[in-house]
């Protein structure tokens, strides 16, 4: 295993004449929690779209774990190769129970249609689901309908659905948007607990305080380019960043 979880080189994405991402390069290492900040339209969500195969870039390279070319894979293949993404809006299946949501996410390879039809969770699978339920603070609530959860619980359930897949790279798009202070705090704890030497975590967030709490390093994007990379204290003090955020 190389130390580079994500290797992004010369990435350019354009929609018509507009360049959402312009010649972006960055490296995220295993064991790291990376915060990505930037004003609206900086290209943060577009970057996640590229990493998960939703948007195809015009040029550039993206390697997972130093070897796997993500740009050649479909959305589902990217997920199976170990990239999990949490969407901005809580995206869980409200008609299923909490445990069923986790059960859907729990799988390590493509199965045949018939295989899915006759699949029954074995002892290991059930234990794994219980583990994750505990991690996201929903022990004993597996049979609850996911539609009845609070906003924060939905966000945690979605993170749990990613965790259960044991991703190498975890992409979190504004995980604390719309959360109460208490929920935000619990989310900080949860994300810190997710740190592992086999995993890199990318957090996109507007909430500076939150980023400072969870992230080791911060990348600042502006108009599709990398403006600055470094620890939060340095980023906060940088005149270019201040100008971008506060205007002239």
């Amino acid at each position: 295993m190389s130390k580079e979880a994500l290797y992004i080189d010369g990435l350019t994405v354009s929609f018509g004449a507009f360049r959402a991402i312009n010649n972006l390069s960055m490296i995220v290492k295993f064991g790291e929690i990376r915060g990505i900040i930037g004003p609206n339209g900086a290209g943060k969500t577009t970057l996640l779209d590229v990493l998960t195969g939703k948007t195809r870039p015009r040029s550039g390279r993206v390697l997972l774990d130093g070897a796997l070319d993500l740009l050649a894979l479909s959305e589902a293949e990217i997920t199976l190769s170990g990239v999990g993404r949490k969407f901005q809006k809580p995206s869980i299946f409200e008609a299923l129970t909490v445990a069923e949501n986790l059960g859907l996410a729990l799988r390590s390879r493509q199965r045949s249609i018939w295989g899915e039809m006759v699949y029954t969770p074995d002892e290991g699978d059930r234990a794994h689901i219980q583990d994750v339920l505990g991690m996201i603070g929903m022990k004993g609530r597996g049979d609850l309908s996911a539609g009845k959860l609070s906003h924060g619980q939905k966000q945690w359930l979605e993170i749990g659905m990613l965790l259960i897949q044991r991703p190498k790279v975890l992409l979190l798009d504004e995980p604390v948007a719309g959360m109460t202070d208490e929920e935000t705090e619990r989310t900080v704890t949860l994300i810190r607990a997710l740190r592992s030497p086999e995993r890199a975590i990318l957090v996109i967030e507007h909430d500076m305080a939150f980023v400072q709490e969870v992230a080791d390093l911060v990348s600042v994007l502006h108009e599709g380019r990398m403006l600055l990379e470094g620890p939060m204290e340095r980023v906060r003090a940088d005149p270019a960043v201040i100008e971008v955020y506060l205007g002239r």
């Binding site: 998960t52 939703k54 959305e75 589902a76 293949e77 997920t79 199976l80 999990g84 993404r85 969407f87 995206s91 869980i92 299946f93 409200e94 008609a95 299923l96 069923e100 059960g103 859907l104 996410a105 799988r107 493509q110 249609i113 899915e116 039809m117 006759v118 699949y119 659905m161 897949q165």
Partner: peptide, 22 residues
């Protein structure tokens, strides 16, 4: 079956299911 859960998941949010690797 789990296939049935997937069908419901497709109804609720198909692209989410795709991002789960299906």
């Amino acid at each position: 079956s789990r296939l049935g859960h997937m069908l419901v998941a497709i109804r609720e949010d198909e692209s989410r299911l795709r991002f789960l690797g299906f």
